[in-house]
Design a protein around this nucleic acid. Structure first.
Lengths: 382, 382
DNA sequence: GTCAAATAATTCAACCGCTAAACAAATTAA
DNA sequence: TTAATTTGTTTAGCGGTTGAATTATTTGAC
């Protein structure tokens, strides 16, 4: 470790303090809260302002004597993040600035399953390029992009499997590198992981499991404000946790997977598929009361196992589960209360996601800017 | 972050390099492998030798020209760690030096369930004090202690529950602070967690789930050579993961917990309890073949859920499961292969623990010395 | 209206830790 | 015996933080 890493660390520390403050802090405030001296903080802030990550704002009216402070805020026109999402029945994208505010967004509805992977990737790249142009026109520079995919992704941007898109070993990063976004640094991640990050940044608790109900069921796990990826990066396959060892055969080849009890197809059996069926379920109380509690119990059984192993105190229901939470949550909570060993003294919370549709796109864009905020040295000392 | 943390970081870095090397490295070797200069390494090594963490050994015979190097090794007579274990039918303890070698050990067999918690704690403290005296007589100073308990422990040393000991909110740290070990820094942890650490230090893979079969079933999760504790520190309750939602009633109040299918009581139904019954199971092939595969399948169902969520590639069977692995592993492997979504391209390994009995005591002692090695600055710059 | 007190931010000498290069020490090979 | 080689130490210099002094700007009291 060199001294330069001290600088890098402290740049990130100062930036974090400014981002976390509820009102624009002064250099002196930051010095007090970090333990660094005001001299050091001043030098660090100079670098961050020079690098376009922080901006100074007029002094907040303050009581008492003394020279008024100059407030520090994240720069609204600094580098921005582009988030993209490919899902079964829509494409989505958005641009987020350093403060986490969504500045531009777009959604393209339409079933992606009939299209070849390359065509879908070209369409989402086109969507991203349009949003990037919008951002540039508004004075913001997109510094990187992240893509959410409903499947298993390796760190190199290879989509091993996206079962519900019928994708198999698709080199998404390679395809996008040749398109209009080819010049941007790009990461590709699982849709549930990025939606969980969106939930975190939208004010979620420090640790939770985000359950993403789309065609399949995925989970994004956040522990201590950090995305948990497991040993090899393929964590969170909640939909294929076993609920009954001798249950119905799942598409994955196993018996009694959760997806067979609480997946979209199971919930909408004998109903029209997609949004139409979900609307029926939301609006017809008797119908919802008839089938959702059973799905909730299965969800609860699977989640209880997860919580017994991971010890996470909050479950967030997202995707199609979000609007159905009133019917699902009581059953989930009941199973958790009965089956989680620590439930007696560490109670569990089940709630609906705070996010609307295309949560993963927002999470993806947020992940880009969070990466810049976490390692400002690379951006500032370029 | 201050400059002193650079020093602390580099002290640990040098120490890690020496510990990881397969033969005593020279200062120049360490400089080459860390990227630090020889001058810096020399200064750091001087501190570490002065602090009693490193020792110089005679030069290894080497071919080629040049001044012979002085080899560096972890100091065999530096600070040592005391590990203690309370289990249902024995107490155990050991002293481990910085190199990880077990120098002294002791086991006291006997059912602890009839005794009050204070009596058990007094007995284990007594055992620890004897081992500490032995270590001192041999020229080693015990620098800290760790205690393994088969239950849920909070960071402050409070044992919330140890169901198989019938303990409930026992302030183990408080009791031990008044005994003969009261002057030692003490940590208390779950038995499966510490056994998993022992497995890791004994050469286990970087990421694995250690399944601890004792009276109950616990799990210690190691990810990237680090113990995974979950959100609040109570991870790994594998025994209460649900295998069948409508299965038999468990002691915990839930239905169909794994412990009902693969716990010691289930395995030894109609057999003598304890070691006698286990010996029967090991020696009577027909008996083992008759009931262990079914237990293995249940274990496999529960572990498949864990692996789908955590994405861990190796399962290590420990405790009573260790010697029974030949009968259990095939069933576990079959369920994992069928139920783990990534099994097709990321194959799973199931193996027996490399450790004998009282693994948790060894892991506890190892954890103490690993803590010293991980933060040598606190020890050296005292 | 002036001055003292208070708070914010900058400047500067000192210190700490690492680097690079020169140097000293100890061995092998010619 | 000497040159080559490698190890380890010494020394000057540099980056980064600290702490104290200094400058800047406001409020409040007389």
């Amino acid at each position: 470790m060199r001294q330069a890493s001290v600088r890098a660390h402290n740049l990130a520390l100062v930036l974090r303090q400014v981002a976390a403050a509820d009102r624009p802090p002064s250099r002196a405030d930051v010095a007090a809260s970090t333990g660094l001296t005001r001299a050091t903080v001043s030098a660090l802030v100079d670098d961050l302002v020079g690098g376009g990550l922080l901006a100074e704002v007029g002094p907040a009216p303050r009581s008492g004597a003394g020279r008024p402070a100059t407030g520090l805020v994240l720069h609204g026109y600094g580098p921005a993040g582009l988030g993209l999402e490919i899902n079964v029945d829509y494409l989505a994208g958005c641009v987020v600035d350093l403060t986490g505010t969504v500045r531009h967004r777009a959604v393209l509805h339409g079933d992606q399953r009939p299209l070849a992977p390359d065509a879908v990737l070209a369409a989402v790249a086109d969507l991203g390029a349009r949003l990037r142009a919008e951002a540039r026109a508004a004075g913001r520079t997109v510094a990187g992009a992240a893509l959410a995919v409903p499947g298993l992704v390796s760190g190199t941007g290879l989509v091993h499997r996206a079962p519900n898109l019928a994708w198999h070993e698709v080199d998404a990063a390679g395809v996008l590198a040749t398109g209009p976004l080819g010049d941007l640094p790009l990461t590709i991640d699982n849709e549930a992981n990025l939606a969980a990050l969106a939930e975190l940044h939208a004010g979620g608790p420090d640790s939770f499991v985000y359950v993403s109900g789309e065609i399949g069921i995925g989970a994004g796990i956040v522990l201590h404000r950090d995305l948990f990826r497991g040993a090899r990066g393929w964590s969170g396959e909640l939909g294929h946790v076993c609920v009954r060892p001798d249950g119905p055969l799942c598409r994955c080849g196993a018996l009694g997977c959760l997806e067979q009890y609480a997946g979209q197809e199971a919930l909408l059996r004998d109903l029209p598929p997609g949004e139409a069926g979900l609307a029926r379920l939301r609006d017809d109380a008797a119908l919802a009361e008839g089938r959702l509690p059973a799905a909730g119990r299965s969800l609860g059984v699977a989640l209880a196992g997860v919580v017994n192993m991971l010890d996470v105190g909050t479950v967030v229901l997202g995707g199609i589960f979000g609007p159905l939470t009133p019917w699902l949550a009581p059953a989930v909570e009941a199973e958790l209360a009965r089956r989680v060993l620590t439930a007696a003294w560490a109670p569990m919370t089940v709630r609906a996601s705070a996010l609307g549709p295309a949560a993963a796109a927002v999470g993806a864009a947020g992940a880009v800017v969070r990466d810049i905020l976490a390692e400002p040295a690379e951006w500032v000392l370029r």
